[in-house]
């Protein structure tokens, strides 16, 4: 084997190292938090379908529906100043048919996602059932009712705030 060929092989092997982390989520302590995947790219996900059923019975009837208005969720990192320190908070904002909806702080882990609307303790807890780069399936359970949400990554445009005037 010639020296140049050897060096080419070594270079290619070395180059493989560069791709070892491709498409991996942002990681803290190697736990690959889900938020990195949610905010990747435009960070927008569209609610495609919901399925609801009674979880207290075997083989329950499943009611499937699609949202009547286009509903998207925009995940991004919100930064603000606290005592002279910039704090980054994982955030999601909902838009329904171009209208801005509520905004939540997000705890997004691989197996669980929590939306918190400002409360210190509490929040809406979702169980992650399916976690793929372009599809997320989460469930929410309260009492006997379970709702399964299916989201698709959509690269949707974030609705811009409409101009308004209240005086002058």
């Amino acid at each position: 084997m010639t020296k140049s060929y050897k060096n080419t092989v070594l270079f290619l092997l070395s180059f493989m190292l560069l791709f070892g982390s491709c498409q991996k989520d942002e990681s803290a302590l190697n736990d690959y938090d889900l938020f990195g995947r949610l905010q990747f790219g435009s960070g927008t996900w569209e609610l495609i379908e919901t399925q609801s059923f009674d979880n207290s019975i075997v083989n329950p009837e499943i009611v499937t529906s699609q949202p009547p208005l286009k509903t998207i969720y925009h995940y991004y990192m919100r930064s603000y100043l606290v005592g002279g320190v910039i704090v980054d908070v994982p955030t999601v904002k909902q838009y329904v048919d171009q209208s801005p909806g509520p905004m939540y702080d997000v705890e997004a882990e691989l197996d669980r996602v929590v939306f918190r609307a400002g409360e210190i303790f509490g929040g809406t807890v979702y169980t992650v059932m399916e976690n793929k780069p372009n599809t997320q399936v989460w469930s929410f359970t309260a009492g006997n009712e379970t709702i399964i949400y299916t989201f698709k990554k959509c690269n949707c445009a974030i609705p811009l705030p409409s101009a308004s005037e209240s005086g002058g």
Binding site: S56, I57, Y126, T127, T146
Partner: peptide
């Protein structure tokens, strides 16, 4: 060795659904 350990505890319902909610 650098390790992350996780224990997940789910409620299982008669429908077969598994939930990790805060209920």
């Amino acid at each position: 060795n650098l390790n992350t350990y996780k224990m997940l505890s789910y409620q299982v319902y008669p429908s077969g659904h598994e939930s990790i909610n805060s209920e």
